[in-house]
């Protein structure tokens, strides 16, 4: 590499550059050997949309849990053995419930805040400038692009995770699911439903 080569425009493949920085930091004692691999394993074993689905299903079958979840989500999810403490420090979780005339959708316009410790990495579209710029301004149009057409009478609230809390939507229980048990109900819940870009 020439001395005039600007590091910020490095043309080496990024995988090689990442490996190089990792090795340099290990060499200098800023990373313990194997520390990055341990963190990768921890990431993989951490949050998952299945956690959100389990929370939603419990809220659908247990009105008491639903009330506790909406009042203090961090404590309530402890009843399912879940926690918001998987990251650097425990973050506050705020759960917002859809209703017959009310729909919620979550975004982080400034970066990409998301309850990763609970739900795992966010989808790529959630991090895109297109979603972040548009959903606060024209949520109906954005939701329509996701195939979610809401009646004109439905009030839409967009939650911008612009500071410290993390947000999750509690979707409405679909009609005709009275016979399903908690596990089968959880299987209906999607990651998009937990963000608010799908009905469930």
């Amino acid at each position: 590499m020439s001395a005039t080569h600007d590091a910020t425009h490095d043309e080496a493949p990024i995988a090689a550059r990442v490996r190089h920085v990792e090795a340099l930091l290990e060499q200098r004692g800023w990373l313990a050997p194997g520390e990055v691999d341990e963190r990768i394993d921890a990431l993989a074993a951490g949050g998952s949309p299945a956690n959100g689905a389990a929370i939603v299903a419990r809220a659908w079958v247990d009105p008491g849990f639903r009330a506790r979840l909406l009042a203090d989500a961090n404590t309530a999810i402890g009843e399912l053995g879940l926690s918001m403490a998987g990251g650097l420090q425990e973050q506050q979780l705020i759960v917002v419930a859809n209703g017959p005339d009310e729909h919620h959708v979550v975004v982080c316009t400034l970066c990409s805040c998301y309850p990763i410790a609970l739900l795992g990495p966010s989808p790529g579209w959630y991090k895109s400038e297109a979603y972040r710029s548009r959903v606060v301004r024209e949520p109906r149009a954005v939701l329509r692009e996701f195939g979610l057409e809401l009646p004109a009478s439905t009030r839409i609230t967009v939650w911008d995770a612009s500071a410290e809390s993390r947000y999750m939507v509690l979707p409405r229980r679909p009609a005709g699911t009275d016979d399903l048990d908690e596990g089968r109900l959880a299987a209906l819940v999607t990651r998009k439903g937990l963000i608010g870009t799908a009905a469930v």
Partner: peptide, 22 residues
């Protein structure tokens, strides 16, 4: 830190939704 609700109309001059910003 507060959750503050704004009418979309006040933010953008259009829209019938609300935006809650922390």
């Amino acid at each position: 830190v507060y959750c503050v609700r704004f009418a979309a109309h006040d933010l953008f001059g259009e829209g019938d939704h609300a935006v809650v910003v922390e």
